[in-house]
Every structure is written in structure tokens, then in C-alpha cells.
Amino acid sequence: MKLWRTPLDVERFRIPHGEVSILVERCKGCQLCVRYCPRDVLEMSDGINAKGYHPPRAKSPERCVACRLCELICPEFCIYVVEVDRE
């Protein structure tokens, strides 16, 4: 993660990493997950689901910090995040 200055206690913290999954058939393409992900992990895809909506996809999954905001904010219950070990 890029930091504008290195915090003194940075060694004491482990930045979690998440794996984001998307159940595309539930998505209605509202873009909230893309817009409000603080780490800019997601983007809208050009593919469509059965109702003709564009679901999002993870463009830079390695940046996800498992904050789960997308999971909570998605009105369609289609995103969830599992915290994983980076190694």
C-alpha cells in the first residue's frame, strides 16, 4: 500500500487481504460497489447477465483489503469478500 509517510507503528499491523467474489446473475449494474470501493478494486465489465445488466469485475484484485464495504453496500447481495492470507 502506498503511504504518504511511513507510520511509526507500521510494523505492528498486518494489512489484511481479501478475495472478492461476484454472483453476476443477481447484479443490477448500479455501480455502487465500483464507485465506493476505497481501494479501486472493481470496475464495470462489458458482459451482460440474464437481465441485460453489466456486472462488475475485479480489475485489480490484489489491492483488496477486505474492508467489506462492497459486500455491505451492494443492494443485491451479489458481492462477498473472504479474507485470505497473502502468502
Binding site: 443490477k28 451492494c74 443492494p75 443485491e76
Partner: peptide
């Protein structure tokens, strides 16, 4: 019963996911 009937961008689903969580 999903996807639910709420419109694209409607916030009710978000309120429900906050409640469930």
C-alpha cells in the same frame, strides 16, 4: 426469490444487508 424486485440503485437492499450483517 433473488434477484429481488427493487430497482437498480434502490437503497432498500443495502439497508437489508446492513440489517442481516
Amino acid at each position: 426469490r433473488l434477484p429481488h424486485i427493487w430497482c437498480q440503485g434502490c437503497g432498500i437492499g443495502t439497508a437489508v444487508s446492513c440489517f442481516i450483517s
